[in-house]
Every structure is written in structure tokens, then in C-alpha cells.
Amino acid sequence: MMGMVMRSFASFVEDHYGEEVADEALSTEGLSTDGAYTTVGYYPTDDLVKMVITTSNSTDVEVPVLIQRFGFDLFSKLADGHADMMQDFTNPIDLLASIESVIHVNVRRLYKDTELPRFDVIERQGDEHLTLAYSSTRPFADLAHGLVHGCLNHFGAEGRATVEREDVKADGTSSVFRIAVRPEGSEPCETKPTPSSQD
């Protein structure tokens, strides 16, 4: 797992649940570096899982929800950190459809050893409908879910969008997301609360 994700998680916990909870997460027993992470390092995925569980226990927020919220938050951090890359996209469907072919290609240029999940486009209809297949060796379908919402929020489309998730595997390593975005100016749709609104 990239160190940037670890630090982002610590930052997310501190911002949303306070310094004390963040301290508890980073003090979790058995972390590979005793909670000292750099953005440029690589760390065991288990470290993140352990910190998520600690945080969930500390906050009584369920793990899937906590991870989705983190994904929502993570997207904005990624977007801020790579503003130049974001300039090429004008709507969320374009960006989500280009994760594999454009964004991950650029990520590998910066972090050649990183192991990335796959986001394969199953079907796309213009800028309104996209069926995206997530697969990974890690159980982070919830994180992907949060990232999708983070993306919609980044482009101001959260209120016009619906995201249906179908878990292909129960362990969180494979899911399909059906994303619909209505054109700007159309009526808001009724959606489930987004991860950010659950704070």
C-alpha cells in the first residue's frame, strides 16, 4: 500500500474524528513501522486494515462506511495533489472511464512498483452512464465506492447522480458500479446518502 494512502487515512481520521482517535489508530498494535509513514514509502496493506478497525472501534462507525468515507475524502486529496492531471477532464464519467487507460498509466510513471486495482469500463453511454468493474487483490471495494462518490462530488454532480453497486465477490475484491449522471439543470434525483453526508 502506498504511503500516501496511509498518511491520507491518518489525516482523514484526525480531521473527522479528532487527534486522539488518530493517535489511537497510529498507535495500533502490530503496525509495521509503529505508525510512522511517509508518503513515498510502501507499507503492508494489513497496516491500513488494522488502523481502520481501530478507528471503527474508537468511533463506532462501521468499517465499510468508514472506508467509503475515507475514499470520498481521498479523492479530493488526490485531485488536489494532481491538479494538472485533472485539467484534462471536464465531467466525472470521462474521468472514471479513463482511470485505467490514463490515470493509472500516469501513476505508474511516478510509482512504478505500485500495485493498482483495475477499473475496467464495461459499458459507457456518453457522459451520462457508465458501468465500471472494480477488481483488486485487496478487499477495498468500499474504498472504490467512496472514490466514485468523491469524483462525482469533485465535478459538482453528486446531486444529479446515482451509483448502484453490485458486489461480484463478497470479500470486497470485485464489484460493479453502475453510475448515472443526469445533465446539469435537470431535477435532483433521490439518492442514498453519500459517504460525506454521513459524517
Partner: peptide, 14 residues
């Protein structure tokens, strides 16, 4: 102090 210690280790690691 714990946070400072973590940041110091992180800096050394970096």
C-alpha cells in the same frame, strides 16, 4: 510526543 516521535521516524525513513 508520540506524534512527534512518529514524524521523526517517518522523516528518517523518508
Amino acid at each position: 510526543k508520540r506524534s512527534l516521535a512518529r514524524e521523526q521516524r517517518a522523516r528518517q525513513s523518508a
